[in-house]
Simulated assay, not measured.
Amino acid sequence: MTIDVSVARVIPLPPEQVAAYAMDWHHDADWTQGIRTAELTREADGGGFGIGAEVTRTAFFLGRRIDYVLRVAAHDFPRLLDMVSVAGPMPMHVTYSFDPDPTGTLARIRVRGGPGGFYRPATPLLARQVRSSLRKDLRDLERRLTQRTEHPEPTD
């Protein structure tokens, strides 16, 4: 049994602004449920963050620590960031997309994968938990971005 969960939310800001924050791995722990740390552990072939780059994340999910590495498979700013796991407890494919909407940006997150080991018997529960976490991620992304817009950081 595999997991395929998608969530979407309209965020009242332009796609470039939403994607600039959400596609920057430095912010992963700020708006993504359970992620405690994120680190760029391999740069893209041309340097920096792009296709081929790898981000190592440490998260807590269902009370367990999970360390995993996501490799960027597609990077089309500001529209798409697609990543696949290359190390971790289960195969995973995570897609973030940001499309123009009449009221801002239609932000979507899709997670696909097959639970392995400890998680296999809990696949239905895991899918519900992933959906709940992703909804919170988009809610928190919107809150962070709209609060930054309402209260921008001072410039010198």
Results as ranks from 00 to 15, higher is better:
L62S: 09
W31S: 02
P115A: 12
L40E: 02
V94D: 14
V10K: 09
G34L: 07
L126S: 04
L125F: 15
E43A: 07
L70W: 01
T56R: 15
A122H: 12
L141Y: 10
A38S: 13
F49C: 00
L126A: 12
G113V: 04
T58L: 05
P78I: 09
V69M: 04
V72P: 02
W31Y: 15
W25A: 06
T58Y: 00
V18D: 08
S97R: 13
V94S: 14
Q147R: 14
P89L: 03
E16G: 12
P15S: 08
T103H: 15
R57M: 08
T146P: 06
L126R: 05
T155E: 15
G116T: 13
L81V: 08
A74Q: 15
F118L: 14
V5C: 09
R143S: 12
D24E: 12
S133P: 01
G48Y: 05
P14W: 05
D140S: 12
S97D: 14
V10H: 09
W31G: 01
P89Y: 03
V94H: 15
V111Y: 11
F49R: 00
V7K: 10
Q17H: 13
V69S: 06
D24P: 05
H151P: 00
D140T: 14
F118D: 03
L62P: 01
Q17V: 12
G117K: 10
S132L: 13
A127H: 06
V69P: 00
R131V: 01
W31C: 01
A44R: 05
Q129M: 13
F49M: 07
R71L: 01
A38G: 08
A22K: 07
R144E: 11
Y21G: 03
Q17E: 15
G46T: 09
V86R: 05
T58I: 04
R144H: 15
T32V: 12
L145M: 13
T2G: 09
A73S: 08
G48H: 05
M83D: 07
P154W: 08
M1P: 11
A87G: 05
T58G: 02
V7A: 11
Q33R: 10
V130S: 07
E16V: 06
E43Y: 01
E153D: 12
G117R: 10
R131C: 03
R57I: 00
T37Y: 05
I35V: 12
P102F: 10
D67A: 07
A87V: 00
A127V: 03
I35H: 07
R131E: 15
Y96P: 03
H75Q: 06
F49S: 00
W25F: 13
V7N: 10
F77E: 12
T41D: 03
Q33H: 11
